[in-house]
Every structure is written in C-alpha cells, then in structure tokens.
Design a protein around this nucleic acid. Structure first.
Lengths: 344, 344
DNA sequence: CTGAAAGCGCTTACAG
DNA sequence: CTGAAAGCGCTTACAG
C-alpha cells in the first residue's frame, strides 16, 4: 500500500502539534506567521490530503439545516423530495438534522416567513427554491450575512450572489427547440403553452430558448402564438381542448413549458389527435411518462430534480462538516427522453 | 440534534461488548445462536444504522485492486480513465491502491495473462472490460472463486454470474432507432455502419435494437444493409467515401454503431453531404462532438463512460471496506445528445 | 464464543 | 499562540 500522509506526518515534519496543523488548515484561531509558513510548506512538500471520512467523524454533530419548496405540482416535487430525503438520511448519521418546510403552493409571503424563521432559529444552513421577488432576495442576503449557508436550487435568483443548482431554463428550451426543428414537417404550425409572468423565471426562459432555435433553423415553421395558462384546472382543460378542436386543422405541434403537460395531453388525446400533433414537454413525471408511452407526448426534457435537491443539501453539509467550499453554480443535465431511454 | 444510535447503544442494550455486535453485523467469527438473536433484535428495535465514515476509517488499509481495459479508441477510453482516476484518488486515502492494466487494443490472450497475474498476485479486487471468450469467462470464474471481488463494466459477459456496470447495448440501439424514426423523411433509405463478429457484443446488440424500432415504427423506410468495418483506417475512409459518393442518390441516413463515427463523418463531410444525410452515432468524444457542432452528425447517443468505470471500482471498494454487497447490475443512463444539451 | 483495549485520522475544548 | 489529550463510531487483534 502506498503510504498515505496524515496530519501526524505533517505535524512531525513541521515540529508542531497536530492541533496547530489543523488550525492553519482551517484558518482557525491565531497562529504566528512563521509557524503558519512552515506548516504550509510541509503540507505542500508532503502533498498532504486530509482524510474526509475522519474529518466528518470528528466534526460530527449538531448542525441543523432547513430546506424549503412548494409541492403543488406534486409528481414533480415528489422527485425533489426524494433527493432531500436521500441527503437527509445520509447526513443524519453525521449529526445533521434536515427540516423540511413545504408550502402547498408558490407563496412569496409564506416563503418570507420561512426565511425569517430560519434566521431567528439560527439554522446553520438553508436550501431553497427562491421565488422571484425583491423581498426574498433581501431576506436571503440577510440570512447569508448572518452566517447561514444558503444554496438555491431549481429556480435561480439572478440578483443574489449565491450558489445555484438546477437546470438552465434557457438551454433546456433550446434543446426542446432543436428536437422540434428536427422532427417537424415542412411549414409546421406550432403553439407554445406557457405561463407568462410566472414567479419562476425558468419558465419564461424556456420559451425564449425554444423560439430562438426554431427561428434559426426552421424559417418555414409557423408560430401561432403562446397560450398562457398560469393554473391547472378543469377550465384550462376545456379551453385547451377547444383550441385544439376548433383549430385542429391548424396546429401541428405544441411545446408545453410548464407542469400542465398532462392536461394538454389529455385534451389532445380526447380529441383523437395523438398521431397528428407533435408534442414536446418537460419533466419525467409519472403522468407525462404515461402519456409518452401512449404516444401522445413525443419527447420529454428532463432536468434531474432529485439531483438538484440532493446536491443543494450535500453542498451545505460538506461546507459545514469539512469546510469544503460550496463553490460554483451547478447546472444539472438536460436530458432528452423518449420511451426507449426512460430510466428504469 | 436527533440522537443517533451507535454500536455502543446496541451493545449496551444487548448486554454484550461492541466487538460482539460487530461480529453479528458481519457474520465474522462464531457467535452463539442466542447472543446472535438478541443482538439482531436490539439492532432492529433501535433501528441502528452503522456509520460508514467510521467504518471506512477503522477498516482502512492495505487493499489492492486491479482495473483493466484497452484504449485503442483513445478519446472514448480516456473518459473511462477519468472515472478510474477519480475513484482511485478518492479511495487512496482509505488505503486502497488501484493498479491500471491498459492494453493497446482488444487482445484476448493479453487479457487472460492479466487475469492470471491478478490471481497470482492475490489482488483483492478486479474491475474489467471482459472480451467475449470462453476462456476469459473461465478465468474470471476462477478469480471469483479465489475470493477476488470482480466487477465487469462497459461490456457484459452474459455467461458470467458477475455484476455488470454499463449501458444496455440493445436499449441504446433502440433509442437511436427511435430518434431516427422520428426524424427521417418518408421512404428514407438508410444504412448501418457496424463491425460484425466483434469481440464486444454491445456492438451487435445496438444494430438489433435499432432495426427493431425502425421496423416497428417506419415500414416506409428502406434498409440498404449493414456495412461492416471492424477497423478504423485510411482504407476504411476511402471505402466509405466511395459508397456515399457513388450512391449519394441513395443514402439518406446512416447509423454508426461503433467508434468509427468520426471517419464516416469525415467521408460525408468531404462529399459535401452534411445537410443531406441524417447521421446518428454513439459516444460523446471530442471528435464526434466537433462533427455534431459542424452539422455533420445530428444526434449522439451517450452511455456515461466515466460513471461506468467509477461505479465499478466504487462497488469493489465499498465491498472491501464496508461489506456492502456489490449487488445488481447497474445500467448507465442512455443519453440523447444534440448540440443544445451537450454537457458543458 | 466473547469482552476490553487500541487504533483509524481528524477536531475540539482545555490548559498553559 | 500552541501542545497534549480525549473523543467521533467502528474494527481488529489479543486475551481469556
């Protein structure tokens, strides 16, 4: 076995105690400049790499982190929840407690209260799906200033200087656009179903990206417009069905940017337009996958939801437990999924 | 902080020493049936979960594992190498040494020698890309019988009862087929470029899967046949260029199952057929990506090579270090990639 | 068959 | 400012 360098080796070589090496490693406590220098040099020369398992063991204990999101589109957020649970389970044995704060729907006021609570209760970390609001941005800034480790996921707050983990909405719209431009027949007439002025900016970015690629690659395609449906309900279903019915001669393809793909799919199926309308949507929810298997939805764009939540919590825990920097934004993979490559 | 149950708690509750609990946990040493029962019950009741970090720390040391593959298609195997290196780095601090045995090309005889060497040198584990040969199967069986932890990756030996990590060749061919069937124009005439009687069975499986989906979805498409090119060289380039040139009226689409996509792409580009031939290939190598960006290749099917190698080594180390079962085969994700969703 | 003790590498009060 | 010691949870010889 190759000899592995430990903190002990460094301490011995530098002629100091292990505690001292630890201190320079983490800039903890005060150390004389020369001791610091010497230790640093030894670390360098020995190419010392701290053992994370040991670190976590020793540091064990007593951290509390909060995670918050809403779960209105249940199937999707359940996947987020899985990521949360997995991380919570994993770090529990290392002494960190993860508390979930889950809202029934997007609610800026409620989210503000949660952030406030997180600050007041002196949580050590916060993983959050931030809604687009100046007040939220401000509240999160305050939390960060008070030393709470904050990581955002799934929706990016571009006004906040904070690590984000999730997909790039614009790029995923572009990917959908590319697929559409590859598949669509000549002079294909298409609509986008979206939700304007959403409090989740990812949604708008998807439309932009989609249109950009179509306009670039397929000048022949005809854009019939955006249908905005911020909510998902009976009424929406009826409206959509009406639109496709009346104009079924006109619509050859549809791109749904939001979580109402299931409703649109149902409308299309009920109008017997399965094979006639090209359908691209987002997220690998059970409903969406079922419609894909039935041939209503052709392609789904995935964004690795479990990974988003898992990574957000993981980063916070690593920072807390091992001082590892939280680091850069991490964009999750944008997957293109057809029935043949569904995962499992 | 929620109280975390440790081995100590279990021991106390069962009225035994920690060592004893450890023994029943790992079926190490002999324990009286009743003690065993009692301890098991306490573990159950307390819902005790061992702390892996602690386990790895204590078990640290002195494991050697070997990994072997070839790297003729360098760009691809470099990605495999990355996975190997990442795992090696990670486990080094835990006292496991990873030795690479890399062949310049597929070579059954050479691989046999490596397996032999692994057995003779009493390695603790072996991660291998097994070539299709009865003798290899036998040699691996012997290694396993001698207690070496073996995991295969990238190419599956279906005659060996051993964990495999990699993509499902058949399913990835099906995925390629689906994309082709979505994109291809009416009466599209297509060829498959492959390498029959390969020593890597994944290749043949891809063709099968591809054809199955096309035949099912697109009766209109016309199959012009399989072009077999086991090697990648100047001569192959010339031949391919000839085929596309002479028959450029005839070939509308091509599916390349092997690592010679770059050569095919070059031929097509040199014949100025970029926009005329639909091109689907495998693996996100630099060359392939470059041809995709130039518009020669339309779609690439990925198979997570880094993950394959990483997971293979990771499983072996976990087994060695924490007794965690190596478990089931793990099929890596089949990704569909266009320029818009290339990772990074 | 089983318990007590030492050790894995790191961190954290506690003295000085 | 810095060292010695105890402890994190688990495993491993060593006695018995």
């Amino acid at each position: 076995m190759e000899k592995v360098i430990t903190i002990e080796d460094v301490a011995k070589k530098a002629g100091v105690g292990r505690g001292t090496v630890d201190r320079v490693l983490h800039n903890r406590g005060r150390i004389s400049a020369e001791t610091r220098e010497k230790v640093l040099r030894c670390i360098e020369e020995l190419n010392y790499k701290p053992n994370k398992a040991a670190r976590m063991l020793a540091r064990k204990g007593n951290y509390r982190i909060a995670v918050t999101f809403h779960n209105e589109e249940k199937e999707f957020w359940d996947q987020i929840q899985e990521g949360v649970d997995k991380a919570a389970e994993e770090y529990k044995v290392l002494g960190v407690t993860v508390d979930d704060y889950i809202l029934p729907q997007i609610d800026i006021e409620a989210q503000l209260n949660i952030i406030r609570h997180v600050i007041d209760s002196k949580y050590d970390g916060l993983a959050i799906v931030p809604y687009d609001s100046k007040r939220i941005t401000e509240a999160l800034k305050e939390a960060m200033e008070k030393g709470i480790e904050v990581v955002t996921f799934n929706n990016q707050d571009r006004n906040l200087n904070c690590c984000y983990i999730g997909h790039d909405g614009f790029q995923s719209g572009r990917t959908a656009g590319k697929m559409m431009s590859l598949i669509a027949k000549n002079n294909c007439r298409y609509v986008i179903v979206s939700a304007h002025s959403s409090i989740m900016n990812q949604i708008d970015e998807r439309s932009e990206g989609f249109l950009e690629v179509i306009n670039q690659n397929r000048k022949d395609m005809q854009f019939l417009g955006v249908l905005n449906f911020p909510e998902d309900c009976e009424e929406v279903y009826t409206k959509i069905r009406g639109i496709f019915s009346k104009k079924n001669q006109e619509i050859d393809a549809v791109y749904v940017t939001t979580a109402i793909a299931g409703t649109v799919a149902k409308a299309i199926e009920d109008e017997n337009l399965n094979q006639k309308v090209i359908f691209i949507g987002h997220d690998l929810t059970e409903t969406n996958i079922a419609y894909m298997k039935k041939g209503v939805i052709d392609i789904l764009i995935g964004q690795e939801p479990e990974r988003q939540a898992y990574a957000a919590i993981d980063k916070i825990c690593k920072k807390l437990l091992t001082d590892e920097e939280i680091g850069e934004n991490e964009y999750t993979k944008i997957s293109i999924v057809v029935t043949e490559n569904i995962d499992e």
